[in-house]
Amino acid sequence: MGPLLPNELISNNTNFLLAFIIGIGFGFVLEASGFSSSRKLAGVFYGYDTVVLKVFFTGAIVAMLGMLFFSLFGWMDLNLVYINPTFLTSVILGGVIMGAGFIMGGFCPGTSVCAAAIGKIDAMFFIIGLFIGIFIFTEGYPIWEHIYKAKFLGFPKLNELIGISQGFFALLLIIAAFAMFWLGEKAEKAFPREEY
């Protein structure tokens, strides 16, 4: 049955309409969880507010479990789902640059759009920065093209890399996430601050 678009059960235009609706859900959840506040987001790096950690990992776990169960029931063919490619050099380099941008700017692209929607001016400036950054990348593409395409490892899954089943890996990830949540809540008690 699923995924619906690759299985040609819905047209491209329906898919775009559904993308819009999914986006509304995405934006609503981000804003309602407090991701529209840069000081709340940055809190995770100082321990006073770990909402990012909790929402982010709970979201990843729920979606992962959902997909594994859908696949188990035969509702969804995981072979048709997009798996992010792994280009080792660029993913590390890009991640490091993004990390620096995150702590300086206080947003990531998704949350900045969401925050700009409720009138945060710092988020609007962040988005201007994003456009400039992307423009620098596209303009200077020939300079970093070889880095961008270096060390292509295909579409590996982490559980295959360490040789365990997807289900068992999911369980380990859940346990790891719970350990992080526990640490996060301890940190919140250790560095209490009023909510922004």
Binding site: F69, L72, D77, G167
Partner: peptide
């Protein structure tokens, strides 16, 4: 749910 998914065999699809 994690325990269930870890216990059932894969590739049933």
């Amino acid at each position: 749910l994690g325990l269930i998914i870890a216990a059932v065999p894969e590739n049933t699809t």
